[in-house]
């Protein structure tokens, strides 16, 4: 983020409050980027699990599935396997929801800050990514 206070002598005074707003905006901007990265990661993981569970629909019920727990593979019955996947999916869905609501919240407050800051500083400030 840069202040583009050009020669136009738009000597708007920066108050402590403005500084706080600018800081919050910058902080939120960093936070939202982190969250978006994490969200994408979790989403991918969830997709893998979804694929996995549909793949297992086709598996033979009597076969043991080699399921990875930690760094080792454990032979599990199909049922036990599906249970594990299900519970993991649940956790991930919850995480995803949490992330997306956080992201929404942050986007909201960023937009509010944008309005306030643009109103005060006009073209002297640039708040786009």
């Amino acid at each position: 983020m840069k202040m583009l206070n050009q020669d136009e002598e738009a000597d708007t005074e920066v108050t402590w409050e403005d500084q706080q707003n600018i800081n919050s905006f910058s902080r939120l901007n960093m936070k939202i980027q982190n969250l978006e990265d994490q969200y994408e990661e979790k989403k991918k993981e969830k997709e893998y699990l979804d694929d996995l569970s549909s793949e297992l629909e086709l598996a033979d019920e009597d076969d043991l599935v080699k399921y990875r727990i930690g760094d080792a593979f454990v032979s599990l019955t199909l049922e036990a396997c599906q249970q594990r996947i299900e519970s993991e999916q649940e956790i991930l869905s919850k995480d995803l929801e949490e992330f997306s609501s956080k992201i929404d919240g942050i986007t909201d407050s960023m937009n509010k800050l944008k309005v306030v800051l643009y109103k005060k500083f006009g073209t002297s400030i640039n708040l786009e990514r």
Binding site: M3, N5, V14, N23, S26, R27, M30
Partner: peptide
Amino acid sequence: LEFLRDQITTMEVNTAR
């Protein structure tokens, strides 16, 4: 890290001004 970001932003604005 958030705190640092705040301080860096403050300092950047200070510098610009």
